[in-house]
């Protein structure tokens, strides 16, 4: 059991030696889905490197379609390093919980995403495997994505992306973590913290924050990400 975990971890680390033009630092997805769940989500990501500051914000609405599948639609706005802020892209995402939590050695799910750039003919189709494994009060979450970019404004290409998170479930409102991201020309790691505040019924507010430092080269490359998710 331990051997398969380390084999999985090894594959996760070596596969994304080549990868993506987009934002690598984003959310690390859990494979779990609950029926009846609806959510509003806001994600903020600020990346500071030698080219300047890039800011990306995502606004989303999600709705569970069944006990195992949920869908989410996104509007993505961004400010580039020239200071121009505006609508960047639209995205539709489906998440599929493949196994019951705790049933097998690890919990598994899949993620499918289609993204279209607003003013450019660029399409991005992603397929990802989502995995979570419990070790007592520690949860290890890993995502591995294959991304296909195509369109007249981009050279068609495949990209690979890995995201990982090691989270200590200390208190519902406060769960420290470490996150790792790997993609094209980017490897980053840093501390994170997240939590959940429950209200009546299925109403709850989830929050996440992480500060990721790029490990690729000597150049400055820091990303701050923040997410708020209201489930109702």
């Amino acid at each position: 059991m331990k051997l398969s975990f380390f084999i999985f971890l090894f594959i996760m680390l070596i596969i994304p030696s080549a990868r993506a033009d987009g934002d690598v630092v984003d959310k690390v997805y859990s494979p779990y889905v609950l029926p009846f769940e609806r959510e509003l989500e806001w994600r903020f990501m600020s990346r500071q490197n030698d080219d300047g500051n890039e800011l990306t914000q995502r606004f989303a609405y999600g709705h569970a379609l069944s006990e195992f599948i949920t869908m989410e639609t996104y509007i993505i706005a961004a400010r580039d390093s020239h200071g121009d802020f505006g609508l960047k892209a639209y995205e539709v995402e489906a998440r599929w919980m493949m196994t019951e939590q705790g049933q097998f050695w690890a919990d598994w799910g899949m993620l499918f995403e289609v993204e279209k750039q607003h003013e450019l003919n660029i399409w991005e189709v992603s397929t990802g495997v989502l995995m979570e494994k419990e070790f007592g009060k520690v949860s290890f979450t890993a995502n591995m994505f294959i991304v296909y970019e195509s369109g007249s404004d981009i050279q068609d290409e495949f990209e690979f992306e890995t995201r990982m998170k090691l989270r200590y479930r200390w208190l519902p409102q406060l769960q420290p973590a470490i996150e790792f991201y790997s993609g094209e020309d980017f490897v980053g790691v840093g501390p994170a913290v997240m939590g959940i505040q429950r209200y009546q019924g299925q109403k709850q507010l989830k929050w996440e924050m992480a500060f990721i430092t790029g490990l690729n080269g000597n150049n400055k490359d820091h990303s701050l990400r923040f997410a708020l998710e209201y489930e109702f």
Partner: peptide, 21 residues
């Protein structure tokens, strides 16, 4: 071709690491 290879690898990973009790 690479996409299929990658998808196959992901599928195999899911299968080999799940066991029923």
């Amino acid at each position: 071709h690479k996409y299929l290879q990658g998808s196959l690898l992901l599928g195999l990973l899911s299968l080999v690491t799940t066991q029923c009790y």
